[in-house]
Design a protein around this nucleic acid. Structure first.
Lengths: 273, 273
DNA sequence: CAAATAGTGTCTCTAAGACAATATCAC
DNA sequence: GTGATATTGTCTTAGAGACACTATTTG
């Protein structure tokens, strides 16, 4: 018998204690409210999907969608599957933002979680079917640093407002990590997961890697600019934005219609990089 | 009885199948060879620590140092512990570069691995004690894209040369991932882990986040430039490098001595960011 | 025509790259 | 002095930010 085969047949992974492994997904989209006047463009807001937990622990608290890794799938596939189960859409982007393994982060026991950002295009949002979860809802996101250097994460839905507060770790070690000072009644360490996810997202959007995933295939440059501004929480002047975006998009022959102002050319993402 | 406490006491994580979770560490340092002339500066090379496996599977193949996650520690602590056990030094930096969970990546069974980059300062390298592992060795690293767009990873020690070949995944999803075309006889999927780690490292070094970790507390600007050039595999003109580095370092009153040329001022990393 | 967005041109400032010139040590 | 690295200065160019101006549509 081949010594390697023989060795493996006698090997028992079960002899060692193992954690449960989960994936939690920060599902984001951009929602627009109705405009004030027939001419004005609607306001855009970055929104996050939370589900209300129906079981202990953290029963009735808001939490990120997520679930356990199954044998035979990668953590990326697990995140994709869970996102689809919760939102009924295929996300345009799915980005790993690290692992959370602090002992005690989950009262059920030894559970480590891989965190992901998932971006849902704004075209699909209207068609979203009823979620698996008993109660899933979109929250407007605000994530800013206050005077004292602390980070405030505010999540707002029609009738609820969650206020979390975090401190950034000195974290010389690459990926920035956050310490929760006030979870804002979010379940588990999900406030920290959301904070890290938003930080990672902003990094990618600054480099234009992920902006397009928030938009349909064809879009105006103003729409693209709005996404960038909404996610990054900044505002830039159109002329400069157009120059920067010029190298990344290509023209189509189509234009918008019916807005109370000059029509805009539609663009698409340039394919060759 | 509190319903949450009651629920948790009846909860059994063991009812679900779980993977084993490991950490693998890409330990890097910069080594210098002896100079050709008493005036010339020695050549610097990026080096990677590998251990020869003493057991199946992949017995006698070279592999990354690493080990299994223990209950009560984070994956970062696990990586730090394993690095110390293997190299007997405390790394200056430890950066998470993602999780590898492809089914079948480990013949022993369902094992997912968190990958880390660990940087060992060049002062400590000489004092490194004999490693735990039966046979640990430093390999010079070369990682480049060839004409056809494939990535070649070449690891060279005194009497061995490992040649791996990889293809970059289209990977719209944030972290770039590599597919192994030829593992170069490295164990498991470690060629892909090394490739991703080097890509992530170069990103951080470009932003000057991690350059300093390769150096002692005080260093000359030429040394800093050499690290940057060695890791990024580029060469820049000193004048421009100095300007860029100026904002990140502060002068000391000390100078180098005994080199066959003009002494250089020593700098240290500027503290306030 | 009025309101609003679409799109262009241009000025300034800064940072990066290239290159030349000078400084200073150990042998 | 010679060989080597250390350090400074300057020219050019590319890109970002600011701002003014023109273009076009619909009610």
């Amino acid at each position: 018998m081949d010594p390697e085969v023989e060795y493996l047949s006698g090997y028992r992974l079960e002899n060692y204690e193992r954690p449960s492994v989960a994936a939690d997904i920060v599902v984001l989209t951009i929602r627009t409210s109705k405009p004030e006047s027939f001419r004005k463009e609607p306001e855009s807001k970055l929104s996050l999907l939370l589900v209300r937990r129906g079981v202990h622990p953290y029963k009735d608290h808001w939490a990120l969608p997520g679930g356990f890794l199954r044998n035979g799938e990668t953590v990326e596939q697990c995140a994709l599957r869970e996102t689809q189960e919760e939102t009924s859409v295929t996300p345009a982007a799915l980005m790993n933002v690290g692992v959370f393994s602090e002992p005690g982060r989950d009262p059920r026991g030894w559970i480590i979680s891989n965190a992901f950002v998932s971006i849902v295009g704004s075209t699909e949002i209207g068609q979203r079917k009823k979620s698996d979860a008993s109660d899933a809802r979109w929250f407007d996101v605000s994530f800013e640093q206050d005077e004292k250097g602390e980070y405030r994460l505010t999540l707002t839905s029609e009738d609820e407002r969650l206020n979390a507060s975090l401190r950034k770790e000195k974290s010389r070690f690459g990926m920035t990590s956050f310490v929760i000072r006030d979870s804002g009644s979010l379940a588990f360490d999900h406030a920290a997961i959301i904070a890290r996810a938003l930080t990672a997202l902003r990094g990618r959007v600054r480099e234009f890697e992920l902006v397009f995933d928030f938009l349909p295939e064809k879009f105006t440059l103003t729409e693209l600019q709005t996404v960038q501004e909404t996610v990054m929480n900044v505002s830039v002047v159109p002329a400069n934005f157009r120059r920067k975006a010029a190298g990344l998009v290509e023209e189509t022959d189509e234009y918008t219609e019916g807005a109370g102002h000059r029509p805009a050319r539609l663009f698409r993402k340039k394919q060759i990089q």
